[in-house]
Write a protein that binds this DNA or RNA. Sequence first.
DNA 1: TTTTGTGCCTAG
DNA 2: TCAGCTAGGCACAAAA
Length: 831
Amino acid sequence: YSSFVLGSRVVFAESRAELRPDPRFDAINVVSLAVEDDGDNTVEVCVLIRGNNDKSQGRRNLDGVIGCSVDVFPEERDLLNHLIDALCSIDPDILVGWEIQLGSLGFLAERAAYLGIGLLKRISRTLPHESKHPPKNLAHESSQVPEASPADDVIMDVSENDWSHTHASGVHVGGRIVLNLWRLMRGEVKLNNYSLEAVADEVLRRKVPLVPNKTLNRWFATGPGRGRHRCIEYVSSRAMLNLEIINQLDLVNRTSELARVFGIDFFSVLSRGSQFRVESMLLRLAHTQNYLAISPGNQQVASQPAMECMPLVMEPESAFYSDPVLVLDFQSLYPSMIIAYNLCYSTCLGKVFPSKSSVLGVSSYSADPHTIADLKNQLILTPNGVLYVQPEVRKGVVPRLLEEILSTRIMVKQAMKKLAPSQKVLQKILNARQLALKLIANVTYGYTAAGFSGRMPCAELADSIVQCGRRTLETAISFVNQHPLWNARVVYGDTDSMFVLLKGRSREEAFRIGKEIASLVTASNPDPVTLKFEKVYHPCFLLTKKRYVGYSYENPEQNEPIFDAKGIETVRRDTCPAVAKMLERSLRIMFEEQDLVKVKSYVERQWTRILSGKVSIQDFIFAKEVRLGTYSARASSLPPAAIVATKAMLSDPRAEPRYAERVPYVVIHGEPGARLVDMVINPYGLLEVGSPYRLNELYYITKQIIPALQRVFGLLGVNLNKWFNEMPRPTRSTLAKRQSALGHGSRDSSSIRLGWNKKPSAKVARIDTYYMSSHCTICGDTVQGSEIFCSHCLKNEAVVATVVAGRTSKLEREIQHLAAVCGHCGGADWI
DNA sequence: TTTTGTGCCTAG
DNA sequence: TCAGCTAGGCACAAAA
């Protein structure tokens, strides 16, 4: 651990026109390594450039600029060989890349293999394997050096392997951990897309530019000097970003802590599933008690009895509640059930009335009747008709494991409280540890119920856990409903939670009653079952099962409520931001003002903006995960996001989305009666100059925004469609005048595609119309006279340089890229 | 027009 | 080879 080093690399390669780099055609121009030494937390950057022989010139222009070492190689092979040497001497434990398969290390390996260099093998820490199938020619050509036969490097190391391809990266280096950072980020932060820019914004709170490969090429081609320097600086900054993100999230320490708690190795924490973690802990404990686990085959697992029990999910009384609603839930309900009722593989005596005799889970067992008779006062009967022995007879392994996990977690939490505020590192470690314990406690039930891939599931045991939980919740609900003093009613509950309506009570009273309920229900249940009083909603909407939203208060002193939504569009990623924003805003207005007139004027204002095109396209971009190759052949067509991805692949095979990558799309006007899948395009398609496409405002309003709002405000008797139909329609007069003044009036009208919008009256809103705007093309600030850019952006050298360099006809396209480089307006935004 | 199946994402 | 669970809502398109 002491010599721990992170290596991070970004590759920039040549590419042809708009295409992404392809190792079969495009040479590597720049490789940048950011190396962090865990001992002193220093970061060093090494840059390798392909260029002319004049090394001194390269150095002179680059030295000291970003504090990195730069080496220039005329030949690509030399560059790669030097890279391999550098990696071997740095000898990092972990190699990180943003996208390991098509970019970064994967690209390097593929390109190296193309040039006859076995890169992955040569940076491996393990000795070359005694190959099972040695190349036949090797015996005859003994002079051949190992790296001269790199073909298997590609086939074995960068091959298309379903599992490692979709879940890790498929790129392996012996003795080193290879991290595919974007995929790890999916589990760390919830985002609409997992580009480096989006993650840097979320994690580091920093806007970073996205410069297309094509632009990098142009910069690089200017040779030693400013342009090439900018290219190198950009590539290096991307490499360092990887390290910064990892450090900000404390990824390495947290993963190490998980590895320590579960007793598994570092990479398995990231690459293996929950079963592996549960087993690691369970088997270790089981062995100390002289138990061995059974190993049923796939057939056995598949043929175990079906599970019959379901958690309780109440149908909520859908309504707007202006009275306080309490939210209480059982803490770690399933682990509590396992402990309280001694539920375990090792304590189960089977069903009282078995449908098939002597079957228990994946195996067979029938309890001896005499034994059962002897134990008759020491048995536990679960609500699904399964017998278990009491802990006095035999303490189960799973209950013991969970008891230890839960009590350790309490100890860790207490230890955290005793820490001085200065002990931040220890604080983080202990916090990671208690989270790991919580995590493992909650998936232990899943282990017993793992049907598809389970290594040791047990249907009866899983059913007992669920049904005990269900009975506990049902008992609590009727207890609350029947209590004579509270006048309370449970209006919703899901698995382990209760929503209690207190009609006509104040929030203060609600907090008092909430505490009472929690302590009485806890007292009426066996240890360690605990009902926790979580919060008071005041007011709230209950919509359907698993969908509700309210203003929440966690203690009586709290004055500012928290907007708390579950399951609705504001927290979902399968709608566009416009829907989420409008829904949240109107809910807040409703909660704060309790006045539908104000809600109505808000949504009408927004609809007007949308219809007049005064909106940011960003708010209308959908982004959904795409898993090409998994779609049903029976279905009529692919989902919209998959359509967009497939289209992109037609012109550039390297644009294929990674498995489960989120692919963005917008909905545009189409032929009347067109299906949705015929009206989706990549968002960039809308921004191109002369684009015939137009955002389908009516689709967004009538198919996305209105239904979402209707589900909420319909509960108050509102008809959103009526609101929309009776709303005065905005005219696009300002825009139309401007266009006709430019002589652009109807040039493209024949190519306008029309869909929902039956009247072909709308004009094309194109980027060049904004040239007549009184706003800066880049940042939107007001400008003087006929200026295109505001004074701030004009002061930005990078912007001006690129504008002046480009010919006027190119200007329009460049503007998309300019927004990314502008230091004033923060960069990555759309225009 | 209603029902059914697929896909996606979330709650717990 | 490798893979915790179920319930549930909703959009969409095709079949009934």
